[in-house]
């Protein structure tokens, strides 16, 4: 399938999802749906670095929060429309990804992982001590109730996230099928051999970190408008980091389908658990599933289904 066809099909599916949600007519469907979409973008973004090149990013929450706080900053400084904020948040977190990668990617993979964890805490401390964006107390964002042509504001946000999801999936699939994707795969499989045969590994890793970080920032940019209130502990929440890892790991890391399946599954479970029992139980399930899958089914759901189909035909 050509990339343009893929984008068209995704857009069609996204339009159908939006029409279905409108037809269903329940505000809650949009609120819950927004969260699911946001996690699809985060998981897909994580997988571009983690799944394709094999470098673990524990700091997804930091990139997400950079997007969110870019919006807060501009909300106070000079209000801009959300699509512009998404681009700005993406650029800024992409640059942070680049800098982060430049500091740690020349070392072994474990250092990059620990470095990303470090980045999250450093940024959280900075934001907590920065009173202009609310400091530890957090910041309110007043949003309009209605959006012209669309209706309720949450539907507008849902639509934006839907567009972002299509964008993220297209980017991921595009990378997978390009020369860039093959370069990433050589790093994942054997970095030393790749380096020796002339693959510019550092440059490729930096590209992956930048794209991945940028997409995470884009996912975070509309977040303040979704909640109406952001504080450092919510924007930097560990559950973003865990979900961003768990979703691709459980879905399967080698293609764009895995994070999509993992995100839909886990985000739905968490929404359900939050409503029926408690949100703690929801994240506990995610943690247990993550540990269970990496131990028992390293290739994720995609791998399980693939193995099952091969088993039947053979």
């Amino acid at each position: 399938m050509r990339s343009s066809t893929f984008v068209l099909i995704c857009t069609a599916i996204a339009a159908a999802v939006f029409a279905l949600a409108r037809w269903y007519g329940n505000e809650y469907a949009f609120f819950a749906g927004y969260v699911v979409l946001q996690f699809i973008v985060l998981a897909t973004a994580w997988n571009i670095l983690g799944g394709y090149t094999g470098y673990v990013n524990f700091g997804s929450a930091a990139f997400f929060a950079v997007g969110a706080y870019t919006s807060i900053f501009f909300h106070k400084f000079y209000p801009l429309p959300i699509p512009v904020l998404i681009v700005l948040g993406g650029v800024l977190s992409g640059l942070i990804g680049l800098g982060m990668g430049y500091l740690t990617l020349r070392l072994r993979g474990a250092f990059f992982a620990i470095g990303t964890l470090a980045l999250a805490v450093v940024l959280q401390t900075l934001v907590t001590n920065w009173t202009y964006v609310g400091g530890a107390r957090g910041a309110y964002v007043l949003r309009p109730n209605e959006m012209e042509f669309i209706g309720p504001y949450i539907q507008y946000l849902f639509l934006l996230m839907l567009a972002l999801t299509v964008f993220a999936l297209s980017v991921a699939r595009g990378i997978e099928r390009s020369q860039l994707g093959y370069g990433f795969a050589t790093i994942r499989d054997d970095e030393l051999a790749a380096e020796a045969s002339g693959v510019p590994t550092l440059r490729l890793k930096l590209i992956a970190t930048t794209i991945s970080g940028g997409l995470m920032g884009m996912a975070g940019a509309p977040f303040p408008y979704y909640l109406g209130y952001v504080q450092p502990s919510s924007a930097f929440g560990l559950e973003y980091a865990v979900n961003a890892i768990a979703m691709p790991m459980i879905g399967g890391t080698t293609s764009w389908v895995g994070p999509l399946i993992g995100a839909i599954l886990l985000a739905t479970i968490q929404q359900w658990a939050t409503v029926t029992i408690s949100s703690e139980l929801g994240v506990l399930i995610v943690g247990v599933l993550l540990v269970g899958f990496v131990v028992l089914a390293p290739k994720g759901i995609v791998g399980l289904v693939g193995g099952w189909r091969r088993g039947r035909s053979g």
Partner: peptide, 8 residues
Amino acid sequence: RGLAFFFG
């Protein structure tokens, strides 16, 4: 995967 295991 080892990292993800301990993170989990």
